[in-house]
Design a protein around this nucleic acid. Structure first.
Length: 489
RNA sequence: GCGACGGUCGUCCAGUUUGGUCUAGGACAUCAGAUUGCCAAUCUGGUAACCCGGGUUCAAAUCCCGGCCGUCGCACCA
């Protein structure tokens, strides 16, 4: 069984995630639910993200609408660019990407933005037919990956946002003013985005409805190397990959050797590296890959994907795009609002540029599960999810050594003292060994066991998931003990 | 979206070839009880499934058609 299958099995059996609407046979692909364990883990992942990125860098966070008006996506370019021209064979229904197919057949490049009409004439003039069955093609159509929705009784045209950042851009002016912003400023958002993928696959890795955590750093393009806080991360080590690997190289050296364009970009890539280092992902299996021009999104000037190696290959977790003034310029022009801000040092107006860190939460959670999954062949092949305590969906379990004794009553009392401060479970069912194994499998880092001695001196044992070692703790000190042990370090 | 293959308890699998013996079987998991009392012990009992819709037939998990989902390949992935 591959690692992906093992994680899938664990997710289904233990309530991390499972298909949406699964009791109905018309449940569409690409929609998944987080069960109790997955939802808890997601909350903790977000808490870590806030701590290590938002608070650390003094960013500000908003929470915007998922449905946005048509004009937003005219301005953002998604109505035009976020779609593919397709041709379909009348005979065998094969579907091809129209521009690429024509260009392949006539040996000439088809420019972006070529109209459907023009492409239809090219097909006719060059007698292009289906390569599978020689059938004729239906007229070229466009498939837009945004979900269209109708608002109100008149069904006014609007769309589910295909990326969370568009709300940040349209809110930028008000947020910047009301929060007394100064460049560079990170504005962040966590939420759902929606893309009508043609073929969603692999559970959490390619969804039609998914969580993003996006950070848009607004900056003055003239001052990308004025970053005093860069010194905090100058020795942070990154893995870069362009034509060749540059492993374990400090942020400072990346700049020095011209591998990264400026201090602002280097600073945020380093910050992101430090964040992911705390998630339990094996950083030796990660890299920032610089994208070639033909791989980049239409709005991106320079792009680095933060990728991680998993059982199904390299997986993109974060897209880091230098979007320049693409978005603010577009929104400014379509909305007729001036989105420039004042640069305080010389009182000049500037339209900020944007460097974006666009993180896929679902993919990140999957990767954490996979990298933390461990089969301990020295102890009955036990399965241990070695999650960092601050990301574990459950922090501890309370277990009476024996059921049907006064230990049960004592255990419940101890659980009551702690359950409001932590995510926890109480379990008296089955042998003590079986209960430890159940907790290990869902990554519970600590097991508190109430035994004979507890009744005598009010101490309990705390068992560590990974080492299986135990230590005795006074019940009065448990809360502090657990807080200390599950703190982010 | 195309093509190939597949879909049976929470999970994995048997049964489908050759329709009836399937009131659908097993393992693990889970629940209750007994027993034990610090690392998946044992025993007893229980809960629990034929992806959905239509068709053929005296009879469908099994054959046929359509849909949905999954895996892989192609294409797609702003």
């Amino acid at each position: 069984m591959t690692s992906y299958d093992q994680i899938m099995k664990l997710a289904l059996e233990r309530g991390f995630y499972f298909p949406s609407c699964e009791i109905y046979s018309d449940a569409p692909a690409g929609f998944w639910e987080y069960g109790p364990m997955g939802a808890n883990m997601k909350y903790k992942f977000i808490a870590l993200w806030r701590r290590e990125l938002i608070r650390r860098d003094s960013m500000i966070e908003i929470d915007g609408s998922q449905i946005m008006s048509k004009s937003v996506f005219e301005a953002s370019g998604h109505l035009l660019n976020f779609s593919d021209p397709l041709v379909e064979c009348k005979n065998c229904n094969s579907i091809f990407r129209a521009d690429r197919y024509i260009s392949e057949k006539i040996g000439k490049a088809i420019p972006e933005g070529t109209s459907e009409i023009a492409m239809n004439s090219m097909i006719a003039e060059n007698h292009i037919r289906c390569q599978n069955c020689k059938g004729e093609f239906k007229p070229v159509t466009r498939f837009n990956m945004m979900f269209k929705v109708g608002i109100g009784s008149s069904h006014d045209e609007a769309y589910l946002r295909p990326e969370t950042c568009q709300t940040i851009f349209v809110d930028f002016s008000r947020v910047f003013k009301t929060m007394r912003g100064k460049l560079p400023l990170g504005i962040a958002q966590i939420g759902k985005s929606f893309r009508n993928e043609i073929a969603p696959r692999q559970s959490l890795l390619r969804l039609r409805e998914f969580y993003q955590a996006e950070i848009e750093v607004f900056c003055n393009p003239e001052r990308l190397n004025e970053m005093p806080k860069f010194d905090e991360v100058r020795n942070t080590r990154l893995n870069l990959y362009d034509d060749e690997y540059h492993r374990d190289i400090t942020a400072y050296d990346c700049l020095d050797q011209g591998l990264l364009p400026n201090k602002l970009v280097a600073y945020y890539l380093a910050l992101l590296t430090e964040f992911y280092g705390k998630t339990g992902i094996d950083m030796k299996r990660t890299r920032f890959r610089r994208l070639a021009d033909d791989e980049k999104a239409f709005y991106s000037l320079v792009a680095f994907d933060f990728e991680v190696e998993t059982s199904i290959g390299w997986l993109e977790l974060v897209a880091c795009n230098y979007r320049a003034d693409y978005d603010l310029k577009g929104h400014s022009s379509i909305s007729n609002h001036n989105l420039e801000v004042i640069e305080p040092t010389n009182q000049t107006k500037v339209l900020p540029h944007v460097f974006e860190l666009s993180m896929g939460i679902d993919r990140s959670l999957y990767t954490i599960l996979e990298h933390c999954y461990y089969e301990d062949f020295r102890h009955d092949d036990r399965v241990v999810l070695r999650l960092n305590p601050y990301l574990a969906p459950i922090t501890f379990g309370v277990l009476p050594l024996m059921s049907k004794t006064i230990m049960v009553e004592k255990s419940r009392a101890i659980h009551s003292l702690l359950k409001r401060d932590f995510d926890s479970v109480y379990d008296e069912s089955g042998s003590i060994g079986r209960r430890y194994r159940r907790l290990e499998e869902i990554g519970v880092p600590f097991a508190i066991t109430i035994d004979q001695q507890t009744l005598v001196d009010d101490t309990v044992t705390v068992r560590y998931r990974d080492s299986m070692e135990q230590e005795r703790i006074n019940t009065g000190e448990l809360k502090k003990f657990l807080e200390d042990k599950s703190a982010v370090v």
